[in-house]
Amino acid sequence: MAIDFDKAAERLRNWGRWGEDDQRGTINHVGPEALKRAAAEVVSGKLISLGLEFSQDGPQIPEITKRPNPQLLASDLDQIFNPANPRSRFNDDVIVMPLQSATQWDALSHVHYDGEMYNGCKASECLTARGTKKNGVHHLGSPGIMSRGVLLDIARLHGVDELPADHKISPDELNRACEKFGVTVEAGDIVVVRTGHLRTFTVRKDKTKVAGFQAGLGAECAEWLYDKSAAAVAADNIAVEFLGMESLTQEVVLPFHMLAIRDMGMPLGELFDLEALSQDCAADGRYSFLLSAPPLKVTGAFGSPINPIVLK
């Protein structure tokens, strides 16, 4: 049964919950208890990166995503510090890239509907060609995003490497994953969902399907995350949510995005590389960990590149 979007939005809306001027949303769930719980997960000394490389041969196809891959340019090569002593040299570079070209957070200004962003900010008053006046990603960067992460490996739950493109993940599957993998999502946790979709790029080296129809969270999962008081959600696909014809053609396009970001104030982490983490969790049976993923404090930006780090 399809979600009643407007009723769900009204129930999930966190506007004013943390004050009229709040620009951090559900990251406010990460308090001292959540941080101490995250730190207690570190017992074996294992470090795992969940970030893609910011490569000129990355997963983006600009004609589809409107986001080119990063372009690295050398600004100085083999430059001499002091002509009188030419032995010492230096090299510098610059990078030109969309802030959301690889592994990244969506800020609370990334999407909106009915002319309003999170916490009632008027889009017409906040959005400018130089960024947003409110809900910029820099607010998520102070002091950052770190908490206990919980991996819900939905692909492994179904015994496959990768969910089919038409698979819309339900709240029931999230509950079943919690039971199977022995975890409980608590207030302030970051929920990490594996679909296997990114394998199309990281394993099969085929970027043509990265931005196509793909498995992901159904809109109903926003209610599940709200009831769990999760701080954020991340996944190994391009939008966290299920991408099919219906999600792009209904009255509210990308309904999970709108409920999570605009109404709940929940950042979305996209294109997380979860293959190494999935294998490690399956090997040691531990599906919770410390997750550190602070965004760059780019003032007024709609998102930020990250290199998320898991410590177990």
Rank of each mutant, 00 (worst) to 15 (best):
L152R: 07
A301T: 02
N237V: 09
I27L: 13
E251R: 14
G131T: 03
A282S: 12
R204I: 07
A222K: 06
C178T: 05
P59S: 01
L72P: 02
N82K: 02
L217G: 06
A40E: 05
Q79T: 07
L296P: 02
D76Y: 04
L290I: 03
Q214C: 15
M266K: 06
E20D: 15
V203L: 06
A177V: 06
V94Q: 11
D166C: 06
T249I: 09
E63D: 10
A260L: 12
E33L: 07
K7P: 00
G149T: 00
C126T: 11
L277W: 03
Y113D: 15
E246P: 00
C126H: 12
V252I: 11
P305V: 08
K228L: 06
M266V: 00
G188D: 10
I3Q: 05
A84H: 14
V150S: 11
V30S: 08
K168T: 03
E53F: 01
T65S: 15
A8P: 01
Y287I: 08
N237T: 06
D166A: 12
G58F: 02
R130E: 13
I95L: 15
E223L: 08
T65P: 01
A215C: 05
K66C: 11
N69I: 10
T208M: 13
T200C: 15
L277A: 06
E116Y: 07
A239L: 12
A232N: 05
A219L: 10
F256K: 03
N14F: 01
V193R: 08
C221M: 02
S247K: 05
P255T: 06
I238A: 15
C126N: 09
E173S: 03
H167F: 14
D76C: 03
C178D: 01
D280P: 00
L73I: 01
A232D: 12
L174N: 00
G285N: 04
K46A: 05
C221P: 04
R199Q: 13
S288G: 03
Q23S: 10
Q60S: 03
D172T: 08
K36T: 06
E63N: 02
S292H: 12
R148K: 15
G269T: 07
K180R: 15
N14T: 15
K134Q: 02
A283C: 04
V94A: 14
N237R: 03
G131Y: 11
E53S: 04
A215E: 02
H139E: 00
D78S: 15
M245A: 15
L77K: 12
D92C: 08
A2S: 09
F5L: 04
E125S: 14
I154T: 04
S55E: 01
M146I: 13
I48M: 00
G188L: 13
